[in-house]
Design a protein around this nucleic acid. Sequence first.
DNA 1: TCTTTATGGTGAG
DNA 2: TCACCCTAAAGAT
Length: 269
Amino acid sequence: MPEGHTLHRIARRHNALLGGRKVEVWSPQGRFSAEAAMLDGRRLDEVGAYGKHLFYRWDGAPTLYVHLGLVGRFTTWSRSEAPPATSGTRLAMRAADATTYLTGPMACRLVSGEEENEIIGTLGPDPIRSRRGRAEFARRLGPRRVPVAAALLDQRIIAGIGNVYRAELLFLLGIHPDTPAAALTPEQVDALWDLSVDQLRLGVEHGRIVTVRPAEMGARGRVDLDDDERLYVYHRDGLPCRRCATPIRMKEVAGRRTWWCPVCQPGGS
DNA sequence: TCTTTATGGTGAG
DNA sequence: TCACCCTAAAGAT
């Protein structure tokens, strides 16, 4: 589930349900018990999302840092009653009108203000936080030889893009994933940033990634699309391109599989 | 009942 | 580049 839009959505919901309230904090799994005890009963001041990173800031306690990684997940109810936590639940938080369980996080720990700043400091501009990161994105992308599909996953260049968005953004712009970053025109670099802003913010609003455009939706609206109708290329190897019917292709770039249409995204090696 | 897969990232070599 | 970490659900047997 987690690309940038997911994390910002979690921050928004947790701010609404838990922010400004005293929160009961514990660790059903036990692996976070000592830290949970330091937060238990404190007031949660604010939840901040930066790229794929979450920071829970408390009154009188260190910041709770959470990174979901590939398999991490928050399950949240807008009431204090919830089903029992599973044995894998690392962290549980409960306020008067909300309960949330965290499973499988890559990172869940308390951090100092200094460490919090270091983590945020490594990140490139986040297109969900601010639209005004285009010049910084272009600067960090730089005249690199790395494939653009690798650069888009590098959180130091742009924060919040994941494996689905990188494939879909490159399809929408007609750019082959192997294209070296240095070979992109300034117009393509600008378009990558602008499209990232639009698409990730759309993802925050809808709560899922939907990149297909109205021309390919048929008579249906964006919210009515089934899960297998939302995307152009991600995980569609061998299936016909929605625009030109050419079979979608797949290869690894930067250690992750990616997908593209050889006709709509010409070039590569 | 296995094995595989997943929208992520780190650290060793 | 590879091994590894985390959990749950889907797919194979």
